[in-house]
């Protein structure tokens, strides 16, 4: 079952946050923001704020209160934010109105680029390796950054997260990239990179496997059987992570 608050949190802290990755991985996006110098804050009731700072050809995503920003986008409700992500509603800028042209032009173009990677074209995935790699990275970041939000706001997610032992899970995709999930007393936090002190590992043997599993074209159980997807270490942590991953499509359909 989906709830709007959890969905809004996923949209902000997993989907929009991906602007950071997009501007790093996608040349077109990098060029779009080459001359930008603006930090946008997304304010949604009851959810940590997100600031996306576009400066010097890069985007930096930051979470929390009291961050500095140039333009504030206020959303009246969780639904409001969720509808904006679907392109059905506009945000309400409450500060930094002079940046509206950036919002209308550059940010909208970036949002289109993000969709291009997060809703990948199956044919292009097959034929264009760099597209596949960028898309897979962004899909993986989206899914694993959504996990802490689901653990925070989804009633089943909260229950699952409480059972995860304290410690770190590494999610590793071949030699390409890694994500780490920290768990402490039911509160989860995702960050990039591999942690040397992880208690559990989820290993995708290649980008191709990760792409297939994230896009639903590969059966994850089949991949476990072939070793393309492998687990190590504290298996209860992995089991619960898998249960949380099973909830992700409810929010990022």
């Amino acid at each position: 079952m989906m709830n709007e608050k959890a969905k809004a949190a996923c949209n902000i802290h997993a989907v929009l946050r991906n602007m950071e990755n997009l501007c790093e991985l996608d040349v077109t996006s990098k060029e779009l923001i080459a001359a930008s110098n603006v930090a946008i804050q997304f304010s949604v009731p009851e959810i940590d704020k997100l600031v996306l700072a576009f400066r010097q050809g890069a985007c930096k995503a930051m979470r929390g209160d009291g961050l500095s920003y140039d333009m504030n986008l206020r959303f009246s409700s969780h639904e409001h934010l969720n509808l904006m992500i679907e392109g059905k509603k506009n945000p309400i800028p409450t500060k930094g109105l002079r940046h509206i042209p950036f919002l209308k032009k550059t940010f909208t173009a970036l949002a289109d680029r993000l969709s291009y990677y997060l809703q990948p074209d199956p044919e292009r995935l097959k034929n264009d390796k760099s597209y596949r790699d960028a898309s897979t990275k962004m899909l993986a970041y989206t899914a694993f950054y959504a996990i802490p939000e689901i653990a925070r706001y989804d009633e089943v997610g909260i229950h699952i997260a409480r059972q995860i032992d304290d410690g770190i899970i590494n999610i590793v995709v071949g030699d390409e990239f890694a994500i780490q999930l920290h768990s402490k007393q039911g509160v989860l936090e995702t960050s990039k990179g591999r942690n040397p002190n992880a208690r559990a590992l989820m290993l995708f043997d290649s980008m191709e496997t990760a792409s297939g599993i994230l896009n639903g074209t590969l059966d994850s159980f089949g991949c476990i059987g072939t070793g393309a997807l492998a687990f190590r270490g504290r298996i209860t942590m992995i089991d619960n992570l898998n249960k949380l991953l099973g909830l992700v499509p409810n929010y990022l359909g």
């Binding site: 159980f221 476990i224 059987g225 072939t226 070793g227 492998a230 687990f231 190590r232 298996i235």
Partner: peptide, 15 residues
């Protein structure tokens, strides 16, 4: 292979 005798639930590590 579903269930406890399969590589996933049976935790065949390393598979």
């Amino acid at each position: 292979i579903y269930g406890h005798m399969g590589p996933a639930n049976g935790c065949f590590i390393p598979v």
